[in-house]
Every structure is written in C-alpha cells, then in structure tokens.
Design a protein around this nucleic acid. Structure first.
Lengths: 141, 141
DNA sequence: ATTTCTCATGTGCATATACACATTAAAAAA
DNA sequence: TTTTTTAATGTGTATATGCACATGAGAAAT
C-alpha cells in the first residue's frame, strides 16, 4: 500500500523565511529611492487601482486595515498619496498624487534591479507556478 | 519579434501578501496550543537541528540574530528551550528542553490542521515547485 | 605582555503586522 | 422621529523584523 509522504516542511515557516530574505533584498535595492519596500508596494498598488476606499485597499492587499493606515501615514505626510471623503458618507478614498507617481517612477529602476535578480534564480515555469501558488494561498481564508 | 513579457507582479509584494494570510491562518490554528506560529517554527527547528549556536540558528532561519534572541525569550522563560555556554568561549548553544518537546508535540495536531488545509489548495506539482522556488529565493543574498 | 582585531552579545530605535476594543456617523427599522 | 444596527474609524497593546551602534571577551599579531 502507498504511504502518504510525510510532510516535513511548513508552508508558514517556508514562506516567512523566504519573505524575510526577499524583503531585505528589496529594501536594500530601494534604498537610493528613499522608499521602503512596503511603501513601493503601496504606491504601485494605488497606481494600478486608482482611487479606492481604505477597506477595498486593505482587502485587496490582504492587509489589516489598521496596518494599512499606519503604513500609509508617512506617504500621506510626504503627500505621495491623498485622501478625499466620499460624498455623504464618512468613508474615505485614497489616491496616488502626481508627487507619488513621480516617486514611484523614480524608484522603478531600483525595484527592477531587485526583481531581475530574483527572476534570474528561477526558470519561467518555476516563476509562473510560484505566482500561481501564492495567489491560491493568499486566498486561504 | 518577440517582446519580453512585461513584469507586472513583484516577488516581494506577492510573497508578503501570501505570507500575511498564511501566517494569520496558522496563528489561528495554533491558538489552542498556546504557541504562536513563530514559536512553533522555532521549537520545530530546534527539534530537528539539536543544540546549535545562536548564530547558526539565526543563519539557518535567515533571521536577524537580534530578532531570533527576542523571539526566543518567551520560550526561554517558559523553559521550552534552554541555553548553555560553549566551553571556554562566550558563545552559547540553544537546545530544546523536554518541556519544549512536549509543547511542540501538543501543538502538532493544530499545525497539521492548517498544513492540511493549505495542501488542499495546491496540486502536488504546485507544492513541490513552490517549495523549490522558495528555497531558491531564500538564498538570494 | 601589550595592542589590535574579531566575533558573540547587548541595546535602542524604527517599521510591519495583527487583534481587541472604543467611538461615531450613516443607514435601517420601529 | 426615535431607536437600533451597521459600518468606517480610531487607539492601545503585543509580536515580528531589521539595522546601527555599543560592549566586552578571546584570539591573533606585535
């Protein structure tokens, strides 16, 4: 009879471990731009989404709302992003300012460097399946 | 001519995103055991490595030494792990205590539940390539 | 033996992340 | 209209993570 292969690794541990290294790498690469990797990610996301409510943004990043707000604060202070209240409700919408778009574009070469380095480690198939797997995992709720 | 596919995702962002969700999931699952996901990971790692120096442990987890020490503290207090100094040097060795081994084994069912859930999301091929890719990425230094 | 150097460790600070609880404005129900 | 409910926010606390810098004990060089 076929014995189920024993699980020896842990998704959580493996993901966290890789994330630590990769985050360090991107932070290093982004240093000249003055942006942290999380800030780059936020600006980039806003650039693609356009104006969104806090909740939508948090949800789409799978990020705790309060964490999002705190991460957003320095970007608000630098006026890389702005907020506007939604007519007649108390909800807000966040959007990327021209200044923010500028910062994002200025940081793109740094980002690209890190990104290219990592791509170099994986085959096309690995990259594509990695991405696909991550997308499945991030929906495990 | 073939245009290189434009890179639209970001390794760092994608990893962090999935890691957030997965970590939440494991923390939830581990709740009854009283261990946090990071603590489970530490105990588990120590269980497999046996006594190791702080530096080796940090290195093998790709974890900042200071972070490791701080994550280790509550486990030391609960006497799940112990330390001993290495003869004639000022270096330390960390090891899993019987109490710690106990805690680890008690938490295993909770962990397994989360682990099984995630496995259910991926095909065997996806799992295996994911793991392989993560291992490559975590060496990007 | 004294000086220098290396390496294990410690401390302080900043960001990233989540959760629980409080607050309050808008919407829905009574 | 008053009450109730829901949903957007805000606050406090705790863990996770990394970096820069300080300290101090052995090891190596002089």
């Amino acid at each position: 009879m076929k014995k189920t292969k024993e699980t020896t690794f842990c998704y959580c541990t493996a993901l966290r471990k890789a994330t630590r290294t990769v985050s360090r790498m991107y932070n290093k690469a982004l240093e000249p731009s003055g942006l942290l990797s999380t800030q780059y990610a936020l600006l980039n996301h806003l650039n693609r989404l356009g104006p969104v409510s806090m909740n939508e943004l948090a949800e789409s990043l799978r990020l705790e709302r309060t964490t999002l707000v705190r991460n957003l604060n320095p970007l608000l202070e630098q006026e890389f992003v702005g907020t506007e209240s939604i007519q007649g409700t108390k909800a807000h919408r966040v959007f990327l300012t021209p200044l923010g778009k500028n910062a994002l574009e200025g940081a793109r070469p740094c980002w690209l460097k890190a990104q290219r380095t990592l791509r170099g480690y994986l085959s096309e198939e690995e990259e594509s399946i990695l991405l696909q797997a991550l997308q499945k995992l991030e929906n495990c709720r």
